[in-house]
């Protein structure tokens, strides 16, 4: 395989990390919490589509929509039931709750689907793109790059140009002042969880199509990687999550190709540590200003 091949597959993996990282970073920005159950939403999205196709014989399009709806609702419900009652609790309690939710989702998946991996049939029907003898790009890769680019553009426009988007920015900066403007903070937090979970569903479906296997732990590693990506880019920063995700995907793939498959994850962590030493707030992270 050529360098270009590794680069392109790294780009598609990275754009999936970016989608997941967006959920982490937006929820962090608005609710000031690390939602460690976010990665498991990916797995729920994957299993929903898997079930819709294999048990209900839904078309891929309907299955995808079902997966997105299930994850969106699940994300909002998790926030309402598990996190909202802890709005004024210490961040440690919230973190432990998030880890608890993560285990709950994984164990429910174990209970329903068992512990062995299932074969996921790709939802992408596009043919591979043969550029020359060495360079073949799979349909999944092309679709992933197109879909994630479109989502990232749409999300950037939504946040910076629309009224609810600006309300989100206001809440992430100063909840009290946002309330004085008439912004409903609880509603804004719900919308943020909904968007983050919908993005995780899309990421899960694309991921399972690229690597056509699924089990209860499918979301774990991508979740951790996306978390690294969000911190790398600057937690709370939307463009940061995009850059962090794509960088991480490319670094991971190139490390696997040219250095060592076993060391690839260690290299990703090393990059994170080096970036944080040079710039503790991440690539695009702002100075953390604590408000009293």
């Amino acid at each position: 395989m050529s360098f270009l091949n590794y680069l392109i597959s790294g780009l598609s993996l990275g754009s999936i990390y970016a989608l997941i990282a967006l959920g982490y970073t937006m929820v962090y920005g608005i609710a000031k919490m690390l939602n460690f159950a976010h990665g498991d939403i990916i797995m729920v999205g994957g299993f929903t589509v898997f079930t819709a196709i294999s048990s209900f014989q839904f078309s891929p399009a309907i299955s995808i929509i079902t997966g997105i709806i299930v994850c969106t609702v699940l994300g909002v419900v998790i926030e309402k039931v598990a996190y909202k009652p802890l709005r004024n609790a210490s961040s440690l309690s919230v973190l432990i709750t998030a880890i608890g939710v993560s285990y709950l989702l994984q164990n429910l998946a174990l209970l329903i689907f068992g512990s062995s991996s299932q074969n996921f049939s790709s939802v992408v029907t596009m043919k591979p793109w043969q550029i020359n003898k060495q360079l073949v790009i799979s349909g999944e890769t092309i679709v992933t790059i197109i879909v994630t680019t479109a989502i990232m553009i749409a999300l950037t426009l939504f946040v910076n140009k629309s009224k609810p988007g600006k309300a989100m920015l206001a809440v992430s900066e100063d909840k009290g002042a946002a309330q004085l403007m008439g912004i409903n903070v609880n509603k804004t937090i719900s919308v943020t969880f909904a968007i983050g979970s919908a993005l995780a569903a899309v990421a899960g479906i694309l991921l399972c199509s690229l690597y056509p296997q699924i089990n209860a732990y499918t979301g774990q590693m991508p979740g951790i990687k996306a978390f690294i990506a969000a911190v790398l880019g600057g937690i709370g920063s939307i463009p940061g999550a995009m850059i962090g995700g794509i960088l991480l995907g490319i670094i991971e793939n190139l490390s696997k190709a040219y250095i060592s498959t076993q060391l690839a994850d260690a290299i990703s962590f090393a990059v994170l540590i080096i970036v944080l030493i040079i710039k503790p707030t991440g690539i695009l992270g702002k100075k953390i200003t604590e408000k009293v």
Binding site: L169, G182, K286
Partner: peptide, 28 residues
């Protein structure tokens, strides 16, 4: 009445320390 419903009733609050949204434009 919850805080976010007060302003539409006719009370505007200019808080201590201004608390303008630092990363948004003056217009926004």
């Amino acid at each position: 009445t919850p805080a976010h419903k007060i302003v539409s009733m006719g009370i505007a609050h200019v808080p201590e320390g201004r608390r303008v949204f630092q990363q948004l434009s003056v217009y926004d």
